[in-house]
Design a protein around this nucleic acid. Structure first.
Lengths: 121, 121
DNA sequence: AAGTTGCTCAACCATGAGGTTGAATATCTG
DNA sequence: CAGATATTCAACCTCATGGTTGAGCAACTT
C-alpha cells in the first residue's frame, strides 16, 4: 500500500516555523504583547528584510496576525495553531509519562512469559 | 543588543524532524511498537534509501533509537525529545486556554477605562 | 514639498533538504 | 560458496531556505 501524503499541511508549516530559533524567539517576544516588525527584528544580528521574512513565515503558518497601522505593522500572537501542534504531540504523551513506563515494564514482563505469539503489528 | 543564537539546538532538530509528514507518519507507526527501517519505509511511494534518510533525521533529532539486529535495524520511539517540544509549547498554553481568553477580555475592558499609559513593554 | 521612517519586494547567492540511482556492505539462506 | 535480503553510502539533481543588498512605497514629520 502506498500512502499518499498531501503537499503541505498546516502542521508542516507550524512545525517548520518553530524549527527556527529566531522565529521561536519572536514568538516569545510576542508573548509579552504586541510588537511591530521593527521591534521583533531589533534583537537579531540580521537585516530588517531578513527578519521580515521570518515574520512572514510565522504569519503563513498562522502563528501570528498582523494589523497594518499606518506605516508600521503590529503583530500579535495567535496561539490556535500552537494548540494544534500541542495536540499532535499529546498523542505521544503516554510514551514519556513515567507512570505508563512502569506499566510498560509490567507488560513486558507478561510478554516475556507468554512469548510465542507475534507482536501487535 | 544583538542576540547571539546557537547554530543548531536540539529543539531545532526536533521541530524540523516533525515538520515532515513522512517522518510524523513514521513516528505514528512506531507508536504501535518497534519497526525495522524496511517496515517504516513500506507505506511510502519512495525509494528505501529516501526513507532511510528520514529515519536518520528522526534518529539525529533523538526521536527514535536504533538497534542493529543482524542485517535489519530495529527502531523504537524515544519520546523524551517529544516531551521537550511539548514543554516548549506548554509555555504558550495560556494563550489558547479559553479561561484565560475570558480573563483577557476582562483586562481589555479595564484597559479601555484607564487608557493613557503605555503597554507592558 | 522634502526628508525620514517602517516596511516590503525583487534579485541574487550559498547552503541544505528531499529525492533519485547505483554501488558497497553485511547478514542470512540454501 | 553463491545468492538473496536489509540497509547504508556516495554522487547527483532540483528546489526551498535563510540570508544579503538595493530599490520602491506609504506614511509620518518638519
Amino acid at each position: 500500500m502506498v500512502e499518499q501524503l498531501p503537499i503541505s499541511t498546516p502542521l508542516d508549516l507550524v512545525f517548520h516555523a518553530l524549527a527556527d530559533p529566531t522565529r521561536r524567539a519572536m514568538l516569545h517576544a510576542l508573548s509579552n504583547g504586541e510588537r511591530t516588525v521593527g521591534e521583533l527584528a531589533e534583537p537579531f544580528a540580521m537585516s530588517l528584510a531578513g527578519a521580515s521574512k521570518h515574520v512572514k513565515a510565522l504569519e503563513s503558518a498562522g502563528l501570528i496576525r498582523r494589523e497594518v497601522k499606518g506605516r508600521q505593522h503590529l503583530c500579535r500572537l495567535d496561539a490556535a495553531r500552537l494548540a494544534d501542534a500541542a495536540q499532535w504531540l499529546s498523542f505521544y504523551e503516554r510514551f514519556w509519562t513515567e507512570r505508563l513506563n512502569v506499566l510498560d515494564a509490567l507488560l513486558r514482563e507478561e510478554d516475556a512469559q507468554s512469548d510465542t505469539q507475534g507482536d501487535q503489528r
